[in-house]
Design a protein around this nucleic acid. Sequence first.
DNA 1: TTAAATTAGATTGCGTACAATTTAATTGTG
DNA 2: CACAATTAAATTGTACGCAATCTAATTTAA
Lengths: 148, 148
Amino acid sequence: MPNHLDNQLCFLLYATSKEIIRQYTMLLKPYNLTYTGYIAILALEDDEQITVKELGKRLFLDSGTLTPVLKKLEATGYVLRERSKEDERQMQIYLTKAGIEVRQKLPEVSRRVMKQLNITEQQYMQLKYVLQDILQNDLPIKDEKLGK
Amino acid sequence: MPNHLDNQLCFLLYATSKEIIRQYTMLLKPYNLTYTGYIAILALEDDEQITVKELGKRLFLDSGTLTPVLKKLEATGYVLRERSKEDERQMQIYLTKAGIEVRQKLPEVSRRVMKQLNITEQQYMQLKYVLQDILQNDLPIKDEKLGK
DNA sequence: TTAAATTAGATTGCGTACAATTTAATTGTG
DNA sequence: CACAATTAAATTGTACGCAATCTAATTTAA
């Protein structure tokens, strides 16, 4: 790999995540899940009702992306969407029994992908801590704009 | 950030790269460049003619993604696309003068984004080496299929 | 208390990504 | 040579991702 992009951290993140997501996508197909649907299900606790906004915060996604994903998860039978009675603007999302069941099978998918990555425990930890650090430190800038 | 996804390496890669690309996208707008157009220009050497396929190898992108990106770069005036005379199936891509000029300004964009990330030299190096490792070791699997 | 401001989610528009298919050119083989 | 197989790029179809806008509900403040 003899090109300038290898030195570009962003490109490495971009290319790596794309390729890993491609592997997830293949393994998730039997469950009728895309990667986005997968992380949405992972982000929901078994007996939890949360709003689209709260879910979006966990996933770093907005309603423009989430609404169609959640509608598809609902059509598949993994989640239910209900208008909140207290605040009709909000949509409450929660897992169905089928959603809870499929959720229990997902760690196996993740295990298979990670196995293919073939990285050491140390590399895994390094990546995890650095990325969590970037995500926490850098990204608040989005909402800060002019000192919110 | 109290959810299970923080432990998912893939999700951290996915969320981090998305958010960094969002920052690039904002800074690239004045140059009429998207992130994909940006990495395409970075991948081209000043006096080099390469095919869509070769460019796709460098960028981990296929013609389905690259063709429209390259057409837009051509419309903007940053690259030229010419059918190869030796092999009419191939499209030769190369930078125009305007492309070479804008290319020289791009390191400044990257510098500004990296500054915002606020990571240490050590973290940068760790990330870089681990990601290059994953990209080299894991991804050949795509083409191997049944022992190519 | 009601009109303005804010908020949540949905919608729209644009630009990727990528699998699968198509088209045209080239190569390999009988 | 001729035709099958392969190859490069383009096209098609599906699914994001996100900014911007829209709509309806709620909150704020005059």
